[in-house]
Amino acid sequence: MTYQMTVSPDFAPELIAGWYIFNTWLQKQLGEGIHLELYNDFKSQREAIRSDQVDIIYANPFDASMLIREKGFTALARPAGKQDEAVIAVKAQYPADCVEDLPPGIRLAFTDDPDVHLMGMIMLEAADLNADNTEKRVVDSYVIVAKQLIRDEADVGFFLKEAFDNLSNFTREQLKVLVESQISIIHHSLLVGPRLAAQREQIREFLLKMSADPKGVGVLESLGFQSWENVDQEDAEFMIDLMDTLG
């Protein structure tokens, strides 16, 4: 049987090769065929999840809740020291230095990344801004969010912090950060579905030992982090509870 692996569509484009390398590594460890399917957006990935096509997923915290509660997935590990944080930015010349300076009616640009959208909207509450008194523009990538701000097509952009930091210096210099989240407890994680239940603990062990193996270290490097950290059932439940409080 060939299993399917997928990655949350908010991963950095420069890591595509890394996920293919990881998939090859995992197939060798497990001795099973795994096909890596990368979806362009959250909507098409969710459709694949709903129709039970996915067996292994590097999921964003928003989807992890649904996968665990509704689809019987189990979280195994998360990248050590890597958290999901959001950045709210405007064009460098925009007449605001903090979110409280933002007036009602502003145009927001963001991607379809659900946790960044959630964190961004939470941070705007402090300025009495919400979905009713702002305009929204959903775009395909964080680079386009930045372009919309620079071209005055939007006033305020939401970014995954990692994506913001990965913008070119030239782009970042044309932007101004109003606020960055410091939540520290929301993160992506690797989950496996019910068809891989029998191999679950074996996969967990492979992941946790990866940083002690020279080949594994190389694979981790291509994914942009140093090691996997164990996620037990209670860690996963805690994060789902947290996401529930924010939703």
């Binding site: 509450e125 509870d241 947290l242």
Partner: peptide
Amino acid sequence: VYATVIPNIRNGEVVGYTSVRRKPSPRK
């Protein structure tokens, strides 16, 4: 603060509560 409290339900039973506070809307 603007606070949200939810019951932590494990195996169908409430085992405790999680509370998350964030910066409130000044008007509200």
